[in-house]
């Protein structure tokens, strides 16, 4: 009989300080289109960040649960969600032949970015806006970071419509 799969996160948290959570947005290229792989029952994957482990290590391991290997993995923004700080990473993977039963493969639409004022974050930020900024940041990285540029030569035309932006708070 099929068994319950192990959970994707195993890090306890405390209510006594601001916790941090890692958020992973997974994108791939299909022809001339950018597509996103999201978990079937959530808008993005979010896991705890255990002491003594790097975010890269945790997220690469998490990708392995879905049979995916990162081509580029980079932090792109942070924001407050409820009582936690969420640190968002964008990962570029090779498109899976089959996303499997736990992921949905969808085209990426464009979204207007949420903007706060000079001293406050925007009141509400949707995952489409987080992904929009992440792709703008990838557009910045592909021109600015030689390692990213070399890893994603096929992504340059795809990212041309995205205004380059640095890592930032959303």
């Amino acid at each position: 009989m099929a068994q319950l799969e192990p959970p994707v996160g195993s890090t306890p948290w405390s209510p006594d300080f601001v916790g941090q959570r890692l958020e992973l947005l997974m994108v791939h290229r299909a022809g001339g289109e950018i597509r996103v792989l999201r978990p079937v029952h959530a808008d993005a994957l979010r896991v705890g960040w255990a002491v003594g482990r790097s975010a890269d290590e945790i997220l690469t391991e998490l990708l392995g649960r879905y049979g995916l290997v990162p081509r580029v993995l980079h932090s792109t923004s942070w924001r407050h969600v409820d009582d936690e700080v969420v640190l968002t990473y964008l990962v570029v993977v090779d498109g899976p032949a089959d996303p499997g039963p736990h992921l949905v493969d969808e085209p990426v639409g464009r979204a207007a970015l949420a903007r706060g004022d000079a001293t406050a974050a925007p009141a509400s930020i949707g995952i489409a806006q987080v992904l929009e900024h992440a792709l703008r940041h990838l557009s910045w990285l592909i021109a600015d970071d030689a390692a990213v540029g070399a890893a994603l030569p096929d992504w340059r035309p795809l990212l041309e419509p995205y205004v380059p932006e640095p890592f930032q708070a959303l």
């Binding site: 192990p6 959970p7 994707v8 978990p39 079937v40 959530a42 736990h102």
Partner: peptide, 11 residues
Amino acid sequence: KEVTCICGWTC
């Protein structure tokens, strides 16, 4: 307690 399933669902 908290559980986050591989499908993204969490409780």
